[in-house]
């Protein structure tokens, strides 16, 4: 089987599985499935930003929050919920385009800390304002729907999330194999050479930063409608760290890496959560366990599979059937 066919087969299998799985889940498992889906969406954007374009963001949670608040506030004020869901990625992207102008002049650690700062500032602002509900948050966000028909069933949300994740994955796959996608991958290696090859480096960095923010905003919108309640506490810095861990563990610079990373981490965190909340465990156990697992996983992956799970496994498979016709 050649590579593209193999890729399509895996994609078809994954699509079929993720379509079937929600039917077999109970209510609380569906919630996990939906959260997993939103994590896939955010992580796909982050992987595009970090893996392909080489720009770090430790503040992806802030765009997730902007999306959630955009959708939530619009819905609470009686605007059509679908409009809210559509506006969520747009506003998140707009914020990214705004802060991106000064931020993207920074590189590496500096950019990481600056994006982290954006999230901290945003959270404290959201906590201050009355119209956002302050620290208490925004309650009673209506259900997603068109006119009188609303989605109440978690199963329906599962499929909305699935559709959004599929869209985001498709857009990402298309993008990286196009002119701007090649430009992004080029500037990740050397901005100087990319510029001289005609790549408008500054504009591209801003565009990919905004696109990754749009993904996060879309996920945030779904999250707000599904839970019906958001507060600054829903978007801790740990959430941003979690997205980075998912992206790195799954494999940066791959389309499917974020899916693998997000699934693995989400399931692991759930397992640890149930372990941490078992009778006899101290109250801080769940927190400690989840922090510990991020740290441990990150260290293990960086030590043994520095390119992430998917590329490492992929190249191992490829070695097996390697034919290198040009090795002289």
């Amino acid at each position: 089987m050649n590579r593209p066919t193999f890729g399509y087969a895996v994609a078809a299998l994954a699509a079929a599985a993720s379509f079937a799985v929600p039917l077999m889940l109970d209510r609380s498992q569906l919630t996990i499935f939906i959260l997993l889906g939103t994590a896939v969406i955010v992580t796909t954007g982050l992987s595009l930003l970090m893996g392909y374009a080489g720009q770090v963001s430790l503040g992806q949670g802030s765009f997730y929050a902007v999306g959630a608040y955009t959708a939530g506030l619009m819905a609470v004020h009686g605007l059509p919920t679908l409009l809210g869901l559509a506006a969520a990625p747009v506003l998140a992207a707009a914020l990214a385009a705004l802060v991106g102008v000064p931020l993207l002049r920074l590189r590496g650690h500096y950019l990481a800390f600056a994006t982290l700062a954006v999230q901290l500032i945003l959270l404290s602002l959201v906590g201050q304002f009355e119209f956002t509900g302050g620290d208490i948050g925004l309650r009673g966000i209506p259900q997603l729907g068109v006119g009188d028909a609303t989605l109440i069933d978690p199963l329906a949300y599962a499929y909305v999330t699935l559709a959004a994740a599929a869209l985001v994955l498709l857009v990402t796959r298309n993008l990286i194999k196009s002119r701007p996608g090649r430009g992004l991958r080029a500037l990740a290696s050397t901005e100087v050479a990319a510029e001289s090859a005609g790549v408008p480096v500054g504009r591209y960095k801003l565009a990919v930063f905004s696109l990754s923010a749009a993904y996060a905003g879309l996920a945030g919108g779904i999250y707000a409608f599904y839970l019906g309640y958001i507060s600054p506490g829903s978007f801790p810095v740990l959430l941003s760290v979690q997205f980075v861990v998912m992206a790195v563990v799954g494999g940066l610079g791959t389309v499917w890496g974020p899916v693998v990373g997000a699934t693995l981490i989400t399931l692991l965190v759930q397992a640890l959560n149930s372990l941490g909340t078992m009778p006899g465990m101290p109250a801080y156990a769940p927190d400690v366990l989840s922090y510990a697992v991020y740290a441990l996983l990150l260290i293990l992956v960086l030590l043994f599979m520095p390119r992430g799970l998917l590329p490492s496994i992929g190249s191992r498979l490829e070695d097996r059937r390697a034919i290198s016709p040009t090795r002289s």
Binding site: V171, T172, N174, L175, S178, R179, P180, G181, R182, G183, R185, A186, A194, A197, G198, V199, A207, L211
Partner: peptide
């Protein structure tokens, strides 16, 4: 792909056209 990047100078399609 490296060489294809050079084509930036005489092509126009951007993020929308590429992604969609």
């Amino acid at each position: 792909e490296n060489v294809m990047v050079g084509a930036h100078t005489w092509t126009r399609h951007g993020f929308w056209s590429g992604a969609l």
